[in-house]
């Protein structure tokens, strides 16, 4: 990719942008004279966007939603990786926990919402954060266990014979070695987290991105509802891009290793 000429670069930009441009144009023109209630012209939606998402909804709906997602997700990441290292390091513990964890992972996360609602009601931040954290933790936990389990024995033994301390071994050998699998789990957890962020707000009707979109729908403010759907889509795309950026940096050593192993 590094030795792409100017022509190659232009070609790449063109192939990247061509289809999206065609699709947006198609939506724009196909809906231009639309009188259908559900499918307003794209023009109307675009015009509605800045008036709908002003500073107030950003401050009181979008940012709080994202903050809850971030807090819940980070709790899940810390708990999942921490517990995963503990469980993965002991074969007995792993075999005891495995069926229970498989069951907990298989429970579709949205059913957590009624269960958590039983305990704490479903209005404040806490219940929503718990929902997100509990939903995200299982893929991270199970992948970490798997990552720790499949660590190279030789690496562990080498660390021991070089007299590496427990903390240093944990940090440099165990967590490092398991990090590609932790990243896999974290990626799965992110999409679950976004789903839970939205539906936790659909359930307990106060403010938030999901709640705002549903209020537009219930009030039949269709162009505004569409702007919400588009905003949510953009957030999903932005989060996945952000994740890839972080992963790219954190796992740079792993890609290099894989390339070296392939003899490239």
């Amino acid at each position: 990719m590094a030795h792409l000429g100017a022509g190659g670069l232009v070609k790449r930009v063109l192939t990247t942008l061509a289809l999206p441009a065609v699709l947006v144009a198609a939506w724009w023109f196909a809906s231009a004279h639309s009188t259908s209630f559900f499918w307003p012209p794209l023009r109307t939606i675009v015009e509605a966007f800045p008036e709908t998402w002003t500073a107030d909804p950003w401050l009181h709906d979008v940012l709080p939603s994202l903050a809850r997602l971030a807090i819940g997700y980070l709790i899940a990441l810390a708990a999942g990786a921490g517990l995963g290292v503990a469980i993965g390091s002991s074969r007995t513990l792993r075999e005891i926990c495995e069926p229970v964890l498989e069951f907990l992972r298989a429970v579709p996360p949205p059913v957590l919402i009624p269960v958590i609602a039983l305990f704490a009601g479903y209005t404040g931040w806490t219940s929503k954060i718990i929902t997100i954290a509990l939903g995200c933790v299982w893929p991270i936990l199970l992948n970490t266990i798997e990552g720790v389990r499949s660590l190279d024995e030789v690496l562990r033994d080498t660390a021991r014979s070089y007299g590496l301390g427990r903390v240093a071994t944990l940090w440099h050998v165990v967590l490092r070695g398991a990090s590609p699998r932790i990243a896999t789990g974290a990626r799965q957890a992110l999409s679950i987290g976004v789903i839970l962020m939205v539906i936790s707000e659909l359930f307990g009707a106060n403010r938030g991105l999901g709640a705002a979109i549903v209020q537009f729908q219930r009030g039949f403010a269709i162009p505004q509802m569409w702007t919400g759907i588009i905003l949510l889509g953009l957030i999903g795309v932005a989060l996945s891009a952000l994740f890839r950026l972080v992963e790219h940096r954190a796992l740079a050593w792993y890609r290099g290793l894989r390339q070296a192993e392939r003899g490239a």
Partner: peptide, 26 residues
């Protein structure tokens, strides 16, 4: 494949729950 790559990368992470209000209406 080259033409659709960016579109797929864009559409894939859109959370399907974003479509809930739309399908409820329809």
């Amino acid at each position: 494949r080259a033409l659709t790559a960016s579109t797929i990368e864009f559409l894939r992470p859109i959370p399907s729950v974003a479509l809930i209000p739309l399908v409820v209406l329809i």
